[in-house]
Nucleic acid binder design. Structure first.
Lengths: 210, 210
DNA sequence: ACAAAGAGTGAATCACGGTTCACTTTTTCA
DNA sequence: TGAAAAAGTGAACCGTGATTCACTCTTTGT
């Protein structure tokens, strides 16, 4: 036996894998999973098509991993918003929604790919998994708000899903008109819509928010 | 010239075209536009693959027509709800949302295909067109409610889009758990979420709806 | 320096599904 | 009835894009 993987090789392989994932991420962010084509990925990563298959068993696996990483980042952002301990559950939720909305609006193709684009069973399963994480995060905040009697009793999961849907549709749906209003105004409006949906009785008759 | 299309032939052709559209509609309703494959359509319609092309120039055209017809039906349902003159704008809107939600929940695959599934440019353009009709209908009701001072000033189009998104996501998104609650309860809940999103100050402190 | 083992390559292959077209069948009318 | 015109057929064709594989290049330990 005259060969055993050494650190140098391991590092190079790790680097190549990173380049593959990076290239894939770029393609998806630019034009969705439909643009994730094996020789495009290879070309952008600077390797041969065949080499891809030394790193990922098949396209499904690669796509699922790209999806997983991308969603992880998004979920982390939202989680961080919800962990700030310096305000009430409802404000934190509002902040998280706003972040979610702003990030979606800044990278609409990516957001669409993660939220809605159908790909294949493996990715759809990943999507389900991370969707659950998302929904759980929001739902958890909703539950806290309920416990704190800031909003009335309701199914937190359903509300959470509805809020994600409202934001997604308004910002990246087919009718999302590009930047008629400035970014911040539009995300604020839609966030307010969501929060009001949860919490009718915390708002005064003049409609002023918390 | 020893041939000119006669009534008999015309009728038969019309019938065949109907069968093609019917078969296509079934396939889409069962598994989305991805299942709209030319030889599947032909088989279900009981004709040869080649014959399809005597009726539709290509798949794009067929898909667009299937989409158009299906959406027309849905839009009509909603329009009818909004035309009832016997109640206030907000009640009508609520009724329309409820109808939209119930129909989506009963045929989720079809709803998904019409609302979200990406197909091809021709269909996407149709989608944009009918989405606009949809949004306009809801937005019109929202505007009326604003004029009647039932809800505060807001961008009716944005609210309308958000409501459609909330319903779609909650009912047919990847997290749409099948029938945990009875149909009516779930559509009612989500409808209420939407209406509250519009109209904070019409609700009393107890959270009772109009 | 050499041989074993893995890593890298990219042209060839394969699967899938839309489209075509040479052919058959049906319809119409003189 | 016969010939023109159209309708119907389905196997062959084609483009696209994932996957394979026979080959070359690198790396490693003796």
């Amino acid at each position: 036996m005259a060969y055993r993987e050494t650190a140098k090789v391991r590092d190079r392989k790790a680097l190549t894998e990173q380049r593959i994932l990076q290239a894939s991420h770029e393609l998806v962010a630019e034009a969705g999973f439909a643009a994730l084509q094996m020789n495009q990925v290879a070309q952008r990563a600077g390797i041969a098509t065949g080499s891809l298959y030394r790193y990922f068993a098949n396209k499904e696996t690669l796509a699922a991993e790209v999806f997983r990483q991308a969603t992880e980042i998004e979920v982390d952002h939202v989680r961080r918003c919800l962990q700030q301990a310096d305000s009430c559950a409802l404000s934190r939720l509002e902040h998280a929604l706003q972040t979610f909305a702003e990030r979606a609006l800044k990278a609409p193709k990516l957001a669409w790919a993660l939220i809605a684009e159908p790909v294949d069973p493996a990715v759809d399963q990943q999507r389900l998994h991370y969707r659950l994480q998302y929904a759980n995060l929001f739902a958890c905040a909703v539950q806290q708000a309920i416990d704190d009697q800031l909003i009335p009793q309701q199914d937190p999961m359903l509300s959470s899903t509805a809020m994600v849907g409202a934001i997604a549709e308004a910002l990246i749906g087919p009718l999302a008109q590009q930047a008629q209003d400035p970014t911040h105004a539009i995300t604020h409006t839609i966030t307010q819509f969501c929060v009001r949906g949860l919490a009718p009785f915390r708002y005064s008759v003049t409609g002023a928010s918390l």
